[in-house]
């Protein structure tokens, strides 16, 4: 069981200098929730576009000259890599500048980088996806993967939390996911009159589940405090921490292990992460300011 590490690595076909961006044009912009939009990117270099592939959970470095670079998870289907999507929440300088871009504008892209959700080693198991807010974006490629290979997985549950109903990411896809025998349970912190679903924080949704601890894998992405409680709820149901996978976020500058910014104890989150098993990070997860 301890061998179930998220060490699936996929090194991109890089130019000689890993710091050089590849230019991509924005093919489409889709508004999602307030402050969040999904950008379809198309590489200008046809050979690179054809060769490009990624694994679910990996990220790209997106670059705007004169502004800077930011790590953004890929949110599209890994089996259609030419339809490359990034779902971006406006949070800092670079994402604010991206928000001002129009269709046809160009962005520098380096990647894909990092570890992937271990969808292959989870084959044959029940899967619980647990997302908080924008955390559903890095999980969506894995959701698309299990939909494409639905027969290879057992029971699939998606727990999705948002602050309010209007913040619920990808909600218009939930019914399509449900058609593939996937249980999607959304919950919000604050409801309004229109809301028919649950109210409360995501980890509490575990109380309505009866996961089989011998045969369940958890993929979670969201605020660290949420992922901590997700891990605790999983542990309380005797799901081993080796089968609870989180996606962590740290300052990333280079994404290739040179700049040192994304260190999390023994790991570089750009190389061994961002997807790690809870067992790997447990010794450090409660250390303040680590």
């Amino acid at each position: 069981m301890a061998t179930k590490q998220s060490t699936l690595q996929h090194i991109p076909t890089i130019s000689l200098d890993p710091m050089l961006p590849h230019w991509a044009a924005i093919a489409k912009i889709q508004d999602e929730t307030p402050g969040v939009a999904t950008y379809a990117l198309e590489f200008q270099d046809l050979a690179f576009r054809t060769a490009y592939s990624f694994l679910p959970g990996q990220f790209n470095m997106l670059y705007l000259p004169g502004i800077g670079e930011v790590a953004i998870s890929i949110s599209s289907d890994p089996e259609t890599p030419h339809e490359l999507l990034h779902t971006i929440r406006v949070a800092g300088n670079v994402t604010q500048a991206i928000e001002r871009l129009k269709v046809g504008d160009q962005i520098g892209v380096r990647g894909p980088y990092g570890s992937a959700w271990p969808v292959e080693v989870a084959r044959g198991e029940d899967l619980i996806f647990v997302a908080g807010g924008i955390g559903l974006a890095p999980l969506r490629p894995a959701i698309y993967h299990v939909i494409r290979h639905r027969a290879e997985y057992g029971k699939i549950t998606i727990l999705a939390g948002a602050r309010s109903p209007e913040d619920m990411l990808y909600h218009d896809e939930f019914d399509a996911w449900r058609e593939h025998d996937i249980e999607v349970i959304p919950t919000v912190d604050r409801a309004d009159e229109s809301w028919q679903g649950r109210v409360g924080v995501v980890p509490m949704l575990f109380y309505s589940l009866r996961p089989d601890p011998r045969n369940t894998t958890v993929f979670t992405c969201g605020p660290e405090i949420m992922m901590r409680f997700v891990a605790y709820e999983a542990m309380a149901r005797r799901i081993p921490t080796e089968r609870v996978f989180v996606s962590l976020e740290r300052n990333m500058k280079c994404a290739v292990g040179f700049c040192g910014h994304c260190q999390y104890g023994p790991t570089f989150l750009c190389k061994e992460g961002p997807v790690l098993s809870f067992a790997q990070i447990e010794p450090f997860y409660n250390v303040e300011e680590f």
């Binding site: 710091m19 000259p65 004169g66 800077g68 500058k253 280079c254 040179f258 040192g260 910014h261």
Partner: peptide, 16 residues
Amino acid sequence: FCSDMKDISDLTGANT
């Protein structure tokens, strides 16, 4: 070995 990356643009903003 830790490093940072900076963009230095000219006044027109066209060259970085």
